[in-house]
């Protein structure tokens, strides 16, 4: 990753609002809808559960590995896996190979599309920028993991302290 940042998804925080979804589809396609979004939300309304599912930019990407034409490949400059629509033949192999189901086929072109971290957008990926709950963040994994380490440790200490007092 050239800029060292990645999209990270915190399922505990996701409210399932799909602000990411509408932002993504508007930014990339100039229209709003779930079918053209690169990020998806899975909701279980009955149980009050919501999950955001987006591209994790695998280092060893199954989508790139199965692509027969080289359309889906690691862009070594950007450090991310991208799909070149011109080379894509719409075979859906990448969509089938993606372990998270976040590669989709475009309803207009019939070609595969996936997250490109909103290349060229100054404020970073729109999904993280618009996420109102902090469920999607765009940050360096190292820094984020350090913060998580600290938060989780503090939570455990507090719980232990509360246990002693109680």
């Amino acid at each position: 990753m050239s800029n060292g940042k990645a999209l990270m998804y915190n399922q505990e925080k996701c409210t399932g609002c799909r602000s990411c979804v509408v932002g993504c589809s508007l930014y990339h396609d100039g229209e709003c809808g779930k079918v053209t979004s690169r990020v998806a939300v899975v909701r279980n309304e009955r149980f009050g559960e919501s999950f955001v599912v987006g591209c994790d930019m695998c280092t060893d990407a199954p989508c790139a590995a199965v692509c027969p034409t080289g359309a889906c490949a690691m862009d070594t400059t950007a450090g991310i896996t991208k799909i070149n629509a011109e080379k894509c033949i719409g075979c859906k192999e990448c969509a089938m190979a993606c372990p998270f189901g976040v590669i989709n086929m475009h309803y207009k072109t019939g070609k595969a599309f996936k997250c490109d971290l909103c290349e060229g957008r100054d404020a970073g990926p729109v999904c993280a920028d618009w996420c109102p709950s902090g469920a999607i963040t765009y940050a360096s994994p190292n820094i984020a993991l350090k913060a998580k380490r600290r938060t989780k440790l503090m939570e455990r200490l507090e719980a232990a302290k509360a246990g002693e007092e109680g």
């Binding site: 409210t15 799909r18 602000s19 509408v22 009050g48 109102p132 709950s133």
Partner: peptide, 8 residues
């Protein structure tokens, strides 16, 4: 859990 309506 906190829940959001569409695009909220």
């Amino acid at each position: 859990h906190r829940e959001g309506c569409f695009a909220c």
